[in-house]
Amino acid sequence: MDTSKPAASSSAAPRRSFKAQYLILYNFVSAVLWTTVFGRVVLLVPLVGFTHVYGGVGNFAKWTQTLALLEVVHALFGIVRSPITTTGMQVASRLLLVWGIVNNFTRQTAPSVAYSTMLFAWSFTEIVRYSYFVAALGSGGSGVPKILTWLRYNTFYVLYPLGILSEVTLVYKSLGPAKEWGYIYEIILKSVLLIYIPGSYILYSHMMAQRRKVLRGKQRQT
């Protein structure tokens, strides 16, 4: 979900526009919510084990992720500059996981290690991303702490494969129970698995391109 960019509302005007204020609030709230998800996951794993993580965080994570639907709305109405296709696809795939997979086939998917690793990868990425936006919007783009930029453009090397692998595992685990609902559900989930192949390639190369852009920009500054 690294494609959305902060709005270009960082003008010289001393008072922030309503749009900027709203975006800061949205990103701040999201950062706090994902920090809660992250905290719960890393505490629950040693306390109750992978199999019981869902009981302590499942509902909370589901609704936190559902809030990201607003990002599609932002892109749709041009509140942020991020492209609607990428944002839409990323939010849709996340919602498929929390609602379509884990909420429907809880018994077969939630106890899996993949569920915890997925939430770990998601929540860490989101904390960094939303904090980055809050810092960028709040400072007019110039005052983002270096550590946030570094985290944003380096952790994905590890966290994206971890997230994608976990997601694919969960979708794969629900093929069997989906078939009991009807053959069509299994077919749809199989199609989803196939779409992951080019999808993850595009997402990963997009992030590497972004990273190159940001690093090049930095070199120019020095």
Partner: peptide, 14 residues
Amino acid sequence: YSPLLTPLGIALFF
């Protein structure tokens, strides 16, 4: 349905 062609078709379509 075909267990292979059908999901492949849907995936290619999307």
